[in-house]
Simulated assay, not measured.
Amino acid sequence: MNQITRSGWSAYGLAGLVIVFDQAVKAWILGLGLRLYESRPVAGVLQFTLVPNKGVSFGFLRADQDLARWGLVVFSLMVAAMIVWWARRAHRPLQALGYGLIVGGAVGNAIDRARFGWVVDFIDVQRIGFFPWVFNVADSAITVGVIALLLDSLRREPAAS
């Protein structure tokens, strides 16, 4: 059996932190008593707007039926499991960062979908004018994780000796 690298353990730890933070923030948001689609100004262009996202990403590919909902839960967890498998052999910090953020975000949103039938989205910066979507901590983690993996893929490999 292959040993898990130090970066792999870092990815696992980060994924766990993202899941806990994501779920804690969502619990706090749900505890504010916002009605669906109600907005509450926070600071500057930031406001909280409670939006039930039945779609995959930014509301695309809606899962209005239970079969689709549970299919998305299973798919998210399968993708997370695949990335957990890859992360065990991670050797670079940026790679571990990407894996951990993506796994944590995918599992965080899968938990919402399993619990509520939709993902809890609430971060709203629409007043900026060019970003019309409402998102959450897990979505942000997935986005930053993908960027980290893309940046990691641009690294130069040392020449073989």
Rank of each mutant, 00 (worst) to 15 (best):
V125C: 07
Q95A: 15
V144L: 12
R40H: 09
L77I: 01
H91N: 15
N53G: 03
N2P: 12
V107Y: 06
V119G: 00
L46A: 06
P41T: 01
R69N: 04
R62P: 14
I123H: 06
R155P: 00
F60C: 13
S7L: 04
I147V: 14
R155V: 05
A110F: 01
F122N: 05
D22M: 07
I29Y: 01
A81R: 01
A11L: 05
A68I: 06
G71I: 01
R35F: 14
R88L: 09
Q3I: 11
I83Q: 04
Q3P: 14
E157H: 14
D121P: 09
L46N: 02
V103A: 03
L151M: 10
A159G: 14
V45N: 11
M82E: 09
N109H: 04
G13P: 04
G104R: 01
L14Y: 13
N109M: 03
S140Y: 13
A63I: 07
F116T: 01
P41N: 01
V125P: 07
R69I: 07
E38A: 08
L34P: 04
A81L: 06
K54N: 08
I147Y: 06
F75D: 02
I142R: 03
L14K: 11
D124L: 11
R155L: 08
V103S: 02
L50V: 06
F130I: 12
G8P: 00
Q65I: 14
S161K: 12
T5W: 03
G98H: 09
L67M: 11
G31P: 05
G8D: 00
G8M: 01
V74D: 03
G16F: 10
N136W: 05
D64R: 10
V125I: 15
F116I: 02
A106V: 01
L72V: 00
F21V: 15
R40Y: 03
M78C: 09
R62S: 15
V119H: 02
S39Q: 08
G16R: 08
R69P: 01
W86K: 11
F131T: 09
V125R: 10
S10G: 15
R113H: 05
P93I: 12
I19H: 12
D139F: 09
G100D: 03
L154S: 06
F58G: 09
A15I: 10
L97N: 08
V84Y: 06
A96G: 06
A141R: 11
I147S: 10
G8E: 00
W70G: 04
L30R: 13
S140N: 14
A114C: 07
N136Q: 03
P52H: 05
V25A: 04
M82C: 13
V56R: 08
S10N: 14
W86M: 13
A11I: 03
R69T: 08
V134L: 05
I19V: 15
G44F: 03
Q3V: 14
R40Q: 10
V120Q: 03
G8V: 00
D124P: 10
W85H: 15
G16H: 11
